[in-house]
């Protein structure tokens, strides 16, 4: 999470590399105490996923309920707002995943 518009501009250009990727959950957990910028989202889910191209990534898992989550669950990438955005800040976006 950066407040530099230049960093956001540079990073957003590589976001497309993570679009339309599918894979599965290797390990997941529920975060009950989150860091600054994520406090309003707790509890939320995070995990390490493996995409079809065998690359792995730590990601937030969204649009799901705890009872649906399991190792091996098929997921796909989505673009979402990163964390809490203050009024005068640049909006940061990132890749998250949701169950297919």
């Amino acid at each position: 999470m950066s407040n530099s518009p230049v960093v956001n501009w540079r990073e957003i250009k590589s976001l497309h590399k993570f679009l339309n990727k599918k894979g599965e959950i290797l390990v997941w957990t529920k975060v009950n105490v989150g860091p600054k910028g994520f406090e309003h989202q707790v509890p939320y889910f995070v995990g390490i996923v493996e995409f079809e191209d065998k690359t792995k990534r730590s990601v937030q898992i969204v649009d799901c309920e705890e009872k649906d989550l399991k190792v091996g669950l098929k997921i796909e990438t989505v673009v979402r707002k990163l964390g809490k955005v203050e009024a005068a800040e640049v909006i940061d976006y990132t890749v998250k995943v949701k169950p297919i």
Binding site: W28, G37, V46, I48, S58, Q60, K96
Partner: peptide, 15 residues
């Protein structure tokens, strides 16, 4: 990548 996932050290060690 980890900061963007909303992970903290408890989160990483929990995984």
């Amino acid at each position: 990548e980890e900061r963007h996932a909303g992970l903290t050290f408890p989160g990483l060690y929990a995984l």
